[in-house]
């Protein structure tokens, strides 16, 4: 009994000694970095390509999976409490309640995209389910699988790739919409079949729900989700002889963007892609500017491993040296 109490005291002391250190280490580390891909000038000047968003789908978590019984063997049929043709992303009390996907059709040129912007007009009608859209914190991730048709399905969502993810921001004017700068996705855009709109890690008390539509047929351009991609290949900075002044778009202060509308465009189907005219002078962002990259483990619990080792190693040493005779 005394031995047990002694072990307990030792373990408690170790936990007290290592707990704060583990908590500090688990916090995301922010260190300055330089996004070379964004700052490098383009060998073949990047073009902006508007890709077509073909369809959308939304999924919700299976309510059975939240019960102690676990997910049932047979998936529940899709059940949407919202109007047909609306797509949803939401969170309530820190738990995801809905996630949406959009499928895109990329032209051959657009499949080499290394950045761009995704803009999604929002339906802010509370009758359609919209709740506090301005509080939305949404990550945009890429998907490489075909998107199934689904409205409120509990299963069958394509696996999103969120390393890294782009953050969608709520913009109120001129009309409420979400804007995501996809330049952070970089090479992940190659071969992309669509995007997943997932609630970012939310506070336990946060609750919001954004709704968007994909109007069919003739609809004003402002009501349609719009995906603008930057197509071009970056090269080493020393190959540029006459850099032009930097232009900040305002979406990321401090980060120079290499948005360059230029020259003769490759032939693309008009329904799929439109190329911006070549009249405006080339504008290239050349001045390297630092920004901060957040580095952290995806699963901070990994920092508890040293504690496990601290317990396991003495236990093993003790077990391997103790007398095993049974008399």
């Amino acid at each position: 009994m005394r031995r047990l109490a002694r072990y307990g005291v030792v373990l408690a002391a170790l936990a007290l000694a290592c707990g704060p250190a583990a908590a500090v280490l688990a916090a995301p580390v922010t260190r300055p970095g330089v996004d070379l891909a964004l700052k490098a000038p383009a060998a073949h000047s990047p073009k902006t390509v508007t890709a077509r968003i073909t369809r959308a789908a939304w999924f919700q978590p299976d309510p059975l999976c939240a019960t102690p019984l676990g997910c049932g063997p047979i998936p529940l049929p899709a059940l949407s409490p919202y109007p047909k043709g609306t797509f949803h992303v939401g969170t309530a009390l820190g738990r995801q309640t809905a996630r949406a996907y959009i499928a895109v059709t990329l032209s051959k040129a657009a499949q080499r995209a290394r950045g761009g912007t995704l803009s999604i007009p929002l339906d802010t009608n509370p009758a359609d389910g919209s709740i506090a859209p301005s509080a939305a914190a949404i990550n945009v991730c890429v998907i490489y699988q075909a998107l199934p048709l689904a409205e409120g399905a509990f299963a069958g969502a394509p696996a999103p790739n969120c390393l890294p993810a782009a953050r969608a921001k709520y913009v109120a004017a001129p009309a409420p919409h979400l804007v995501a700068d996809l330049s952070r996705l970089g090479g992940k855009l190659v071969g992309v079949k669509g995007f997943a709109l997932l609630p970012a890690e939310a506070k336990p008390v946060s609750a919001w729900h954004v709704v968007f539509k994909l109007p069919a047929g003739a609809a004003p351009a402002s009501a349609l989700p719009k995906l603008t991609l930057l197509v071009g290949r970056p090269v080493a900075p020393h190959s540029v002889s006459n850099p032009a002044p930097a232009v900040h778009t305002g979406s990321h202060p401090g980060r120079a963007e290499s948005v360059v509308p230029v020259g003769p465009a490759p032939e693309l189907p008009p329904s799929v892609a439109t190329i911006r005219p070549s009249n405006p002078p080339p504008v290239v962002a050349q001045r390297p500017t630092g920004h901060y990259v957040t580095i952290a483990y995806q699963y901070p619990e990994v920092w508890l491993l040293p504690l496990v080792l601290i317990v396991l190693v003495p236990f093993t040493i003790r077990a391997m040296t103790k007398d095993l005779s049974r008399r």
């Binding site: 236990f315 077990a319 391997m320 103790k322 007398d323 005779s325 008399r327």
Partner: peptide, 14 residues
């Protein structure tokens, strides 16, 4: 009298 297997906890952990 034989005491219970003293190696049992460690065998379970391994």
């Amino acid at each position: 009298m034989k005491r219970p297997n003293p190696a049992l906890p460690s065998l379970l952990v391994f």
